[in-house]
């Protein structure tokens, strides 16, 4: 079943159009990778999926993004609610550096309203476990988040995103600032997370897309060139432009 249905989506920064007539269906419980050269609109596309795009001054969106059948751009829809259900992890780990590890994990939860401390900590632990970080930090939950390694900080950010129990997790190049071991750890995590969440991951690393994603979307100049099962995109793509891109004949 399609959880996210994008139709005729276009986006602009001021007068510059960056997405053109995107149509896309994302299934519940799947991992979708978005690949394409720099500036092709990958990040803009996922930022349109949880209404982050409009946070940029002069940015504008047209078209529809249905989430569980409801248009997230309907004027009655509260973008904060959408962003709770469709969480996001960014390229550079951005924990609150002076907050403790546990405070970081539950930072988003706290914004949603008052919860008893025991509940908060229980949900924090659950999120840290889901992000594969619990075993490494359980004895120092009071340490500042900024003291963790880069890979741990990124998993802490994933935990923070998961703590509010979203349905979808958007990841914008989540491993591009990490060392190889931390990268593989994040990739492993993505394959675990997709059993419980729908994951959409923007990546510059094509092998990462091949390793973690069930579906791969190739974009060029703000348009979708090809969207299909990852094994098909990397063995027998249908569009010559996809073929040329994945084989490195242009980049």
């Amino acid at each position: 079943m399609r959880e996210i249905d994008v139709s005729s989506l276009s986006a602009w920064f001021g007068s510059k159009q960056v997405l053109r007539d995107i149509n896309l269906g994302i299934e519940r419980g799947s991992a979708t990778a978005i690949i394409g050269p720099s500036g092709c609109g990958k990040s803009t596309l996922i930022r349109c999926l949880n209404r982050m795009h409009e946070e940029v001054r002069g940015a504008r969106v047209e078209g529809k993004v249905l989430f569980d059948g409801e248009d997230i751009y309907d004027p009655r829809v509260d973008p904060v609610v959408i962003r709770r259900r469709i969480g996001m992890v960014f390229q550079k780990p951005n924990p609150f550096p002076t907050m403790s590890i546990m405070e970081n994990a539950v930072a988003g939860l706290k914004l949603l309203g008052r919860l008893p401390k025991a509940d908060l900590e229980e949900r924090g632990e659950r999120a840290l476990r889901a992000a594969g970080l619990w075993e490494e930090v359980k004895d120092r939950l009071g340490d500042p988040g900024g003291r963790l390694s880069g890979g741990q900080q990124q998993r802490l950010c994933i935990a923070r995103a998961l703590a509010v129990e979203p349905d979808v997790l958007l990841m914008d190049e989540p491993a591009s600032a990490l060392d190889p071991a931390s990268t593989l750890r994040i990739e492993e995590l993505v394959t675990e997370l997709k059993d419980r969440y729908t994951v959409v991951i923007v990546t510059h690393n094509m092998q990462q897309a091949a390793r973690v994603a069930d579906w791969t979307l190739f974009m060029l100049y703000g348009e979708v060139v090809e969207f299909g099962p990852t094994n098909k995109i990397f063995t027998t793509p249908e569009d010559q432009r996809t073929e040329d891109y994945v084989t490195g004949r242009f980049g």
Partner: peptide, 9 residues
């Protein structure tokens, strides 16, 4: 080189 697509074939 981890070839893909036509290169892999």
């Amino acid at each position: 080189q981890t070839p893909v697509a036509a290169d892999l074939r």
